[in-house]
Write a protein that binds this DNA or RNA. Structure first.
Lengths: 216, 216
DNA sequence: AGATGATAAATGAATACTCATTCAGTATCG
DNA sequence: CGATACTGAATGAGTATTCATTTATCATCT
C-alpha cells in the first residue's frame, strides 16, 4: 500500500513540474510583453496553454508566481556569471573578458530577460521582496568586480603605472556600462548589435588597462 | 460680456492650475511609494486632498496623469542638467564636475524622483510612450557626455597622453556609474551618502584624466 | 493484454473583489 | 448671478481566486 502511494506520487511530480516550468516560462514571456501590471493570470494561462485555475493551483497566489519568475531569472544570471568566472580560473583579465561575453550573451541578455529584470526594478521600491532579490544579485556581482579591478591594478604588468587608479570607481563604471547596454537592448530589442557593444566594453577596459587589454 | 467671461476664466485658470499642480505632485509621491501598478486614482486624490473625480476632471484618463508625471520629472532633470552645463561655460572639465553635482543633488536625485524614474523604466517595454520619453532623455544626455569626453581627450593638457582613450566607452562608463549610484539611492533611500558618491564619481574621472581631475 | 479503481492534475464557470470613470448635484468666486 | 471648479456615490469593466467536476495516469487484478 505504501509502495503504491509512493509510485503514484513520483509520476505526478514529474508531470506537475513540467507544467510548473511551462507556466514559469510563460510568465516571463508575458511580463516581457505586458510589463508587471499588465500581466494577468488569464494571459499567463493562455501562454502556457493551461486553465487559469492551474496557474493558481501551482503557485497559490499571483504574487508568488511573479516572485518565482524573478527568482528564476536571477538564478539564471548567477549561474551564467559564476560559470564564466570559474572558466577564467582566477585570472582577472580573463574574468573581465568573460563577464563581457556573459553579459551580452544572446541567451542571458535576451530582450525578454532584460525587460523582466527592469520590470522588477520598477516595482522594487514598493515590494521589499523584489528589492532584496535584485539588490543581493547586484551587490554580489559588484563586490566581485571590485576585487578583479583591484587585482589588476596591484598586480598588473605595467610596472606600477596603475597605482593612481581607483578600483571601486572604475569597477562601478564598468558595471554601469554593462547596465547601460542592457537598457539599450530594452530600447532596440532584437536588432541590437551585440558585437559592437562588446567592442565598446572591451574599449573601456583597454582605455584603463592598455597593457592587459590591448586592442588586439 | 466678453470681458466678464475673460476675467472669470483667468481666475479659474489660476485656481485650476494650482489644483492641477497639487495633483501632479501627489501623483509623483504616490508612484514613489506604491509603484506604478499600485498607484490608484483614489490614492492620488487622497494625497492631493481632492475628490477622485477631480483627478479625472483635470487629466481625463489615469494614463494621461501618469504620462504628465513622467513629463514633469523628465523636464526637471533636463532643466537642471542644462543649467549646470551652461554654468560650466563650455569647459568640459567644469561640465563633468557640474554633472556630478547635479546628478547627486538632493533635490534632483530625491529618492522619490529616482523611484518614479525607475518605475517608468519598468513599464517602458510595454508602453511605447514611456519608452520614447525616457529614451530621448537618455540619448541626449549620453551624446552630450560623449562630446565632453572626446574634447578632454583631444585637447587635454597631458601632451597627447590620452590618445589611446576611447571617449564613447568612457562616457558610457561614466553615465553608467551615475545610474548605478541612483540605483543605490533607490535601495538605501534617505540615508544614502551623497558626498561619498560624489567622491567616487570624481575618483572615476581622476583615474582616467589624472591631469584634469587631480585629487585636489 | 485489457479492464479497474484510486489518486493527483487540470479545468473553467462562478464569486467576490478592486478600481477607473461618470455625472447629477454642490460649492466657490468675482 | 453666472460660470467654472469640485464632489463623491454609483456604475461597470476587469481580474484573482475558489471549488465542484472532469480528465489523465498508472499499479494492480483478471
Amino acid at each position: 500500500m505504501q509502495a503504491v502511494t509512493d509510485l503514484a506520487q513520483r509520476r505526478n511530480e514529474a508531470l506537475a513540474s513540467r507544467t510548473r516550468a511551462a507556466i514559469l516560462r510563460a510568465t516571463i514571456a508575458v511580463i516581457a510583453r505586458h510589463s508587471l501590471s499588465g500581466t494577468t493570470v488569464q494571459l499567463v494561462a493562455e501562454a502556457a496553454k493551461v486553465a487559469p485555475g492551474t496557474v493558481i493551483l501551482h503557485f497559490q497566489k499571483k504574487d508568488a508566481l511573479l516572485l518565482a519568475a524573478l527568482e528564476q531569472i536571477a538564478a539564471e544570471f548567477e549561474t551564467a556569471r559564476r560559470a564564466a568566472l570559474e572558466a577564467a580560473g582566477g585570472d582577472p583579465v580573463k574574468a573581465l573578458e568573460a563577464i563581457i561575453e556573459v553579459s551580452l550573451d544572446p541567451k542571458v541578455s535576451d530582450p525578454a530577460n532584460v525587460a523582466v529584470w527592469y520590470a522588477f526594478w520598477g516595482e522594487a521600491k514598493a515590494r521589499k521582496l523584489y528589492l532584496e532579490r535584485i539588490g543581493s544579485y547586484d551587490t554580489v556581482s559588484q563586490e566581485g568586480l571590485d576585487r578583479l579591478f583591484a587585482e589588476i591594478i596591484s598586480k598588473g604588468n605595467s610596472g606600477g603605472g596603475y597605482r593612481h587608479l581607483n578600483a571601486e570607481a572604475l569597477a562601478m563604471g564598468f558595471s554601469g556600462l554593462l547596465e547601460w547596454q542592457w537598457q539599450e537592448i530594452l530600447v532596440s530589442g532584437r536588432n541590437y548589435d551585440r558585437e559592437a557593444a562588446k567592442q565598446t566594453a572591451r574599449a573601456y577596459l583597454a582605455s584603463i588597462f592598455p597593457q592587459e587589454f590591448a586592442p588586439h
